[in-house]
Amino acid sequence: MIDYLIYVILPQVLHGLVWGTVIAFIALGLTIIFGLMDIVNFAHGEYYMVGAFMGYTVMSVIPNFWIAVPVAVACVAVLGLFTEFILFRRLYGRDPIFHLLLTFGLGMMFREAAQLIWGAETKRMEVPVTATVELLGTVYPVYRLLILGIGICVILFIWYLLRYTSAGAKIRAVAQDRTMAWALGIKVPLIYTSVFVGGVALAGFAGILMSPINFVYPTMGVDVILRAFIVVVIGGLGNVMGALFASLLIGEVEALASIWISPTIAETLVFVILIITMIVRPAGLFGKAGER
């Protein structure tokens, strides 16, 4: 019994935590962008994909993972800046269904472009830290624990940023009432741009961090964006704490369920959780009823 817990359950719980953290990276960007500017970014997963591919490219020139990470994140940030500037700007204040469509088309473009540039076949990346560690007797790769650690730091940093800095106060003010915030002298367009860039850079960061564990391929963003969407909706659109909670929930459910059932059915289980949540609480677990 104890053996089962340690050798079967524990690694899966940790897998779930790591996976949940990565989903949280993407979901956080998604939900903050929605909360702030009402944009439902269906192409968010593609920034994750671009992050992974950028890392792959840098690695093929300079085979050092710790150089590849900042370069890839910077590339994704520039891409985010570029797309926000020419496309997303025009969408502020429009019906969310248009956002869904525009980002849907944008995602298609990114995927196809990635396929043209890097090819459709999946790429592997070397795991930068190959060491393992023994936890209560079960052997676990250090790199995954590293992702978990980085994830916790980043999430704490975002929480600190939003809660205790003046930039965070401005962001919250704009999310509450953009007209009022603007009238008070907050540069709303600047806030929008920086939050958007920050959000997609976070997705890119997740992309390169995950690439040594998962493979790198053009449609990798789709798999993760569907989950991130589910997480964001379960948590209540625009709700940061809700997204965090739901990320861990989904990560754990998927990891633990795949002990007993096939991973593809475990994947479907995620959708079932979403559907049940929506039936019980149509505005998400942490959303206020009657919102939207």
Partner: peptide, 13 residues
């Protein structure tokens, strides 16, 4: 798909 995607974007905007 690159062009179809671009078409989506153009239609929406």
């Amino acid at each position: 798909h690159l062009i179809i995607g671009a078409l989506f974007v153009i239609v929406v905007i």
